[in-house]
Design a protein around this nucleic acid. Structure first.
Lengths: 201, 201
DNA sequence: CAAGTTCGGGAGCGATCGCTCCCGAATGGG
DNA sequence: CCCATTCGGGAGCGATCGCTCCCGAACTTG
C-alpha cells in the first residue's frame, strides 16, 4: 500500500509492557511511553489508538510471554510433582530479578491498582488468573493419579490455596521481601500437600 | 491563638484514606480529595502540607484503625487457635464489603502500586506487614504451647506461609473473586497446620 | 476593644496530562 | 513513473495536574 513502519510493533509493545509493569497504569505517561518506545506521539496513536488500548496490548503481550513461560514450567510431567511445584514457585519470586527486582507480577499489580473498575482490564487479568489456577489443578490431579499425592487430597481446593499463596508471593517480591523468607513459605506450602503415600501394596 | 478549624482533622484523614484506598495514589487527584473532604485547596495544603504527606497520614490512619482491628481479632486467646485464625481470615476477605466490596487491603494496594520506589511509603507498608507477621507468630506459638498444634510445627515458617496466603487473599478480594473459593482456600490453609495432637498421656 | 493570627474561599500559577493535526518524506500499486 | 497512502516528526490543542497566593472573615489573646 504505502510506506512501511520503521519500528517493530511487537518490540514496541514489549517495551511498553516493561514500563507499565514497573510503574503501573496511572503513573506511566504517554510521553514516557514515547521516549521508551522511540516513537513520536503521532506514530504511537496511529498504531495503538490510545493509552488504554496500548495498555490492553501490554497485558496481552505479558500473557503471551511471561504467563506462557510460567505455564510451561508447570508442564514438566517427567518429574515429581512436588519438585516441579517448588521450583516453579521459586522461579516466580526470582524471575523478575533477571531484569530488575521488585517488579512483581504485572497482572497482580494491575488487578490491585485498577480493581474491578475497568471491564476490559478485568477480563484479561481474570483470564490470566484462570490459566494459572487451571494449570495448578491439572498438575495436582496428575500428581494424585501418579500416586505422588494422597487420594484424600482435594486437588481443586489445594489448587485454590496454592494459587492464593502464589499471589501473595508475587506481592511480597514486589515489596522487596527477603528471598529466604519467601523460600521458607514455599517449602512449607509444598509440605502442606501432605506426605507421599506408600507405593501400591 | 486564632481562629479554630471548622473541620475535624482526623475525620478528614479518614475520608482521604477511603479515597486513596479505593483509587490508589496516582489516580487520586488533589481536587478529588478536596471534594471528598469538603476542603478548599488552601485549607488542605495548610493542614497537610502536600498530597504525598497526606498520603502518609492516610497510611498511618489505616494502620491505626483497620490494622489495629485486624490485630485485635487475632488476640482472642480464649478460643481455639484454628477457630481464631479461620474467622480472622474470613473476616479479612469480607470486612471491606461492609462499605463496598473490592477495596482489598490499602497496604497491599499501596505496596504493589508504588513498589519500593518511595522510602517513606515502604517504611510504613513494611511496618504494617511486620505487625501482622509478628501477630501470626505469637498466635501460632500460643497454640503450640497450649497443645493445639503439633510440637513439630515450625511456627515461624507457618506464620510466614499464612502471612503470604493472607496477602494473596487480599489481592483476590480486590480482584472481585468469589467468596466461596476464598473460603475453600482458607479452610485448607488452616488444615495445613496439621492435626490436633492427642492430649497429654 | 484592639491587635494579631489563622481561618475558609477562590482565582490562577506553571507544568504536564492525553491527544490531534499538519507537514514533508518515503514507499507502494496501477 | 506518478499518485495515493502511510510514514516520522513536531507544534500545540484544551483539560487537568499539584500547588500558591491573596482576600475578607472569624476567633483568641492582651
Amino acid at each position: 500500500m504505502a510506506r512501511p513502519r520503521q519500528f517493530d510493533e511487537e518490540n514496541a509493545v514489549g517495551s511498553a509492557t516493561g514500563l507499565f509493569w514497573r510503574r503501573g497504569y496511572h503513573a506511566t505517561s504517554v510521553r514516557d511511553l514515547g521516549d521508551e518506545l522511540k516513537l513520536t506521539p503521532s506514530s504511537l496513536y496511529r498504531t495503538f489508538t490510545d493509552k488504554h488500548t496500548l495498555f490492553l496490548r501490554a497485558l496481552d503481550h505479558y500473557r503471551a510471554t511471561e504467563s506462557v513461560e510460567a505455564r510451561r514450567r508447570l508442564d514438566a510431567t517427567d518429574r515429581p510433582v512436588r519438585d516441579v511445584l517448588r521450583e516453579w514457585m521459586r522461579w516466580l519470586v526470582t524471575c523478575p530479578a533477571d531484569g530488575e527486582p521488585g517488579r512483581g507480577c504485572f497482572v497482580v499489580n494491575t488487578a490491585t491498582e485498577l480493581g474491578t473498575t475497568d471491564d476490559q482490564v478485568q477480563q484479561r487479568t481474570e483470564a490470566a488468573f484462570e490459566v494459572t489456577r487451571q494449570a495448578l489443578r491439572t498438575v495436582l490431579a496428575e500428581g494424585r493419579d501418579r500416586g505422588e499425592l494422597s487420594e484424600d487430597l482435594d486437588t481443586d481446593a489445594a489448587a485454590e490455596l496454592l494459587f492464593t499463596t502464589v499471589l501473595g508471593l508475587r506481592v511480597r517480591e514486589r515489596a522487596g521481601h527477603d528471598l529466604q523468607r519467601l523460600t521458607v513459605a514455599i517449602d512449607l506450602a509444598i509440605r502442606g500437600l501432605g506426605p507421599t503415600p506408600p507405593g501400591p501394596a
